[in-house]
Write a protein that binds this DNA or RNA. Sequence first.
DNA 1: CTGCTAAAGTTCGACTGTCGAAATCTAAAC
DNA 2: GTTTAGATTTCGACAGTCGAACTTTAGCAG
Lengths: 154, 154
Amino acid sequence: MSKSELVYHVAREIRLLQQSFDAFDEAAAGRLGINRTDLRALDVVLGRGPVTAGELTAALRLSPAATTTVIDRLERVGLVARTRDAANRRRVLVEATEAARAAERRIYRPVGEAGLRALTRYDHGQLETIVDFLTTARAVQQEHAERVATEPAD
Amino acid sequence: MSKSELVYHVAREIRLLQQSFDAFDEAAAGRLGINRTDLRALDVVLGRGPVTAGELTAALRLSPAATTTVIDRLERVGLVARTRDAANRRRVLVEATEAARAAERRIYRPVGEAGLRALTRYDHGQLETIVDFLTTARAVQQEHAERVATEPAD
DNA sequence: CTGCTAAAGTTCGACTGTCGAAATCTAAAC
DNA sequence: GTTTAGATTTCGACAGTCGAACTTTAGCAG
């Protein structure tokens, strides 16, 4: 394959990879009977441990009002528990339940392990190339997201 | 950096890359004054040329009803034109306007070019590694999306 | 032709997720 | 002890999506 063909493939594969992540998230949300926003919230809670409602608001970039209902929904299906912070009773702490951690194991662990296994196929230099590529791609993407967001409207 | 550190970085960078794509789409939608669904629809129309409402419904995985309103919104802001197919007057053809193509040039072309430039830094073998990585990652992701979607509920 | 059935979109009413503003409850400052 | 500020929730309104019913057009059987 020529270099320009490879470049074309990279562009194409990136799109497909995005779509496959999307499909995975959709499947995970469906499996848990929750929507995508709630899944993102659960991800944050599972990843960072007990978190305040305010932190969740910031992490999800939602309004405080919306975050309240997100927590309500997750609590109602038993994936999250709400407790008032003993040290500062204005705060609400949101924590993943055992059911949520079990779901995490069932859903995310297998794909994580498969990912790691797949990466063992690459040698050290190849992994460096991959990391470099991912970092560069992200930098380009962020730079242009910034440009598009700030550019004059017309 | 050790191999296991590199593997860790790959996982982390993938997450960040996803987020940066998300941020870019958000910025693009904001710039055009439309929502994310409408942006996806516009993407399809720009990419495939004139498309029927039914094809759009399939591509976006929306209901026909929702697709109608997507087209309504895009038409109202002048990014898309609706015409009845002369050959089969039940069909509605949706076509990108010149304004939409101009927006595409302003928003997407610079990032596309930057992406291509960035890829020229890699030699042939490195590009092969990158393509292989992307293809593998997608395969893993798709396989597990399938698993999660079909697995028994508990 | 005529009438019937299927196809492609649209309209309508209901529901869900999100928001801004006002309200509630708690902590801190004076 | 009253006031001010902080964290979350409640409330009313609005946008996006859906399923079901409806409209228009095509294709076909008689």
